[in-house]
């Protein structure tokens, strides 16, 4: 079954066609890599799919269209994204960053804070426990009381992934999870993604680190100049001559 199906997506900034008629589908429980040279339109694709930018075309997520929804409603449907530059909430603690995320918390409504303090409290304790489990999964549980501003770049990436998982997404869009991360951490991030995929999560991942993305992806889509160039298994993509010319070059 396809969790996401995007048809003929278009977005232009003035005369620049950032995304020019792109279509792609992702099967539930798989990892799709999205690669292409800088300026190919990958991040614009992300913005369109997650509702942060409006263009034209159809986006069907879990069988329902999402192309007219604001980003928060797309997220409520179970699609979460991270950003190329990590958006850690630096003035909140690591634990608060995670506890912010879960959907439909009773304590997010003022009247519940007043009228049902007990259920708000018990839910908050449950969320705290879950946050600690997720922090343990990413092996950053020792940082829970640190302000996120004190974290290193790599730790911020982990924090952002951890926070995204807190909303129990069915589809995660990761924007360059391996960029600026040391080889050890990079390997760990691949392991985390593998493990989450085995638990049923679907991924769409933008990445420039070709060895890393070919290692974890089931299929790879290549973009160039706002268009989809090709799509296939990592091996097929690696052997595609056009891709080699346009992007991979000496790496292939």
């Amino acid at each position: 079954m396809n969790i996401l199906s995007v048809q003929n997506l278009k977005k232009h900034f003035g005369g620049v066609r950032a995304v020019d008629g792109c279509s792609l589908t992702i099967k539930t429980g798989t990892v799709m890599g999205l690669i292409g040279p800088n300026g190919a339109g990958k991040t614009t694709m992300f913005n369109l799919i997650s509702g942060f930018a409006k263009g034209s075309g159809k986006i069907i997520f879990k069988g329902r269209p999402t192309d007219n929804l604001p980003p928060y409603k797309v997220a409520q449907r179970g699609m979460v994204r991270t950003f190329q530059i990590p958006h850690a909430l630096t003035k909140m603690t690591v634990l608060d960053n995670l506890m912010l995320a879960p959907k439909a918390q009773a304590g997010e409504r003022i009247w519940n804070v007043w009228l049902r303090p007990q259920s708000v409290k018990t839910q908050d304790i449950r969320i705290k426990e879950k946050s600690r489990d997720v922090l343990r999964f990413f092996e950053i549980e020792h940082l829970e009381n640190e302000y996120a501003g004190a974290l290193s770049g790599g730790q911020k990436k982990l924090l952002e992934m951890a926070r995204a998982i807190m909303i129990d997404p069915s589809l995660m869009l990761l924007d360059e999870p391996f960029a600026g991360v040391n080889p050890t951490l990079s390997r760990k991030i691949s392991e985390y993604i593998d493990e989450l995929r085995e638990s049923g999560m679907t991924f769409l991942i933008i990445e420039h680190d070709i060895p890393a993305i070919t290692r974890i992806s089931d299929r790879i889509t290549v973009m160039n100049a706002g268009k989809i160039m090709t799509e296939g298994t990592p091996d097929e993509v690696k052997q595609n001559r056009d891709v080699l010319n346009a992007y991979l070059g000496d790496e292939g």
């Binding site: 997650s50 942060f52 958006h87 909430l89 630096t90 995320a101 959907k103 995204a164 909303i167």
Partner: peptide, 12 residues
């Protein structure tokens, strides 16, 4: 207060 993008991306 800190960054509207984050709560929006998390469904708030």
């Amino acid at each position: 207060r800190e960054d509207e993008t984050v709560p929006a991306a998390l469904g708030k």
